[in-house]
Amino acid sequence: MSKAIKKIGVLTSGGDSPGMNAAIRAVVRTCAYYNIECVGIYRGYQGMIEGDFKEMGPRSVNNIVNKGGTVLKTARSKDFMTAEGRKKAHGHLVEAGIDSLVIIGGDGSFTGAEVFNKEFGFPVIGIPGTIDNDIFGTTHTLGYDTALNTVVEAVDKIRDTASSHNRLFFVEVMGRDAGHIALNAGIGAGAEEILIPEENLGLDRLLESLQRSKASGKASSIVVIAEGDKIGKTVFELKDYVEANLPEYDVRVSVLGHMQRGGTPSCFDRVLASRLGVKAVESLLQGKSNYMVGLMHDKITLTPLEQAIKGSSKIDEELLRVSDIMST
């Protein structure tokens, strides 16, 4: 029989994403609902190593459901990658009476949680928070929906300039290993081409596509590129290549960068964060550990952390087909 949970620690780790604050709020208030103490751990695993803790109650999370970023701050901790660092972190948790953890982050954060669980038998539950939507075991990660809306809005504005000047714009979006943002936002914004890591379009095919667009009467074009796309070493080198081979195009580059991580979370992300936070706390209270809570077929489910880390999110083949048709 599992030991009764009395005090839950919550932290955010890795890159921030819209919806993290809503998830923190959900964890804190679910703890209050079940008369369980909750402690906020600042700056992720680094704060755990340094004992940077603060008691949190229902009123301490007022008015954060609508805020981007994370009130608990976040950091990447090299110290936590060492056995000595993890031992120090465990000592601080025991000293504070914290007996379980909710970790909001991505696969790197979950890897740390899994190692920590194996070394100390410490109960952990993960909540997927990353705009890249690249975690196995959930159709949506926290922040992904908001990031899509941010990108679409930005591309809509860039298109106004592209149309006014008859220009070709390469718009680089986040997605080092996954093209979910580029594919969905590209379709939503009406991009002429979409370049993602999962599909190697090839330089020749890109040139052919742009030539067809020009021949069909399109005076301007938008190409959305995931930062991890392999077609060119950088988006700027790709720009130079296209200008050298298609001199009729006036090419510009716009790198959206970290603006995609910020901003007010969408309603979808707020609701998802609330559902995941409740499930995370209730799972710990039910004696479950070393799982990630996620969304599958509109149901909140549990996936073993090991699978969430080692599995890969698949690109939607139907969306690829839709993208090809829409670029005609």
Rank of each mutant, 00 (worst) to 15 (best):
A219E: 01
T303Q: 00
N290C: 12
V251W: 00
D316N: 15
E248M: 03
D204R: 09
S254H: 14
A308I: 10
K314T: 10
Q260M: 12
T234S: 15
E248A: 03
E198F: 08
P304W: 10
G277H: 04
V271W: 10
L201E: 11
F268S: 01
L302V: 07
D240V: 07
E237T: 03
L295R: 06
L276K: 05
A226G: 05
A308M: 10
E306I: 09
G202M: 13
T301I: 15
R212Q: 13
K288Y: 12
Q307T: 12
V255D: 08
V255R: 06
L210R: 01
L207D: 00
R321S: 12
K279H: 06
M292I: 09
V223L: 05
I300W: 02
R205K: 09
M259R: 15
Y291H: 08
R275H: 11
G262N: 12
E317W: 06
R275Y: 07
V242L: 11
R275D: 09
T301E: 12
D229F: 00
V224N: 10
D269Y: 07
K230D: 11
G232A: 07
G262R: 12
M296R: 09
H258S: 13
E306P: 03
D269V: 02
G217L: 00
K218G: 00
K233I: 10
K233F: 09
D229N: 13
V278I: 14
L206W: 06
L305E: 11
E243V: 00
E243S: 03
A308G: 10
D250H: 12
G257T: 02
G287C: 09
K310A: 14
D316A: 05
L276E: 02
K239C: 03
E237I: 04
H297C: 14
G311Y: 04
D269K: 03
A215D: 00
D240C: 02
K310I: 10
V281P: 14
L295Y: 05
C267W: 13
N290L: 10
E318L: 11
G217E: 07
P247V: 02
R212T: 09
K230M: 10
K310N: 15
H297T: 12
L256P: 05
G277P: 01
A226S: 15
Y249I: 03
E243I: 01
N200R: 14
R275A: 11
A219R: 01
I225G: 04
V322L: 14
L238T: 15
V322W: 11
L320V: 11
R321I: 14
L302C: 08
S254E: 14
S220Q: 05
V281K: 15
F268R: 06
K218Q: 00
V223H: 08
E306Y: 04
E199I: 14
P247Y: 02
C267S: 14
E237H: 05
S220V: 02
V223Q: 02
H297P: 10
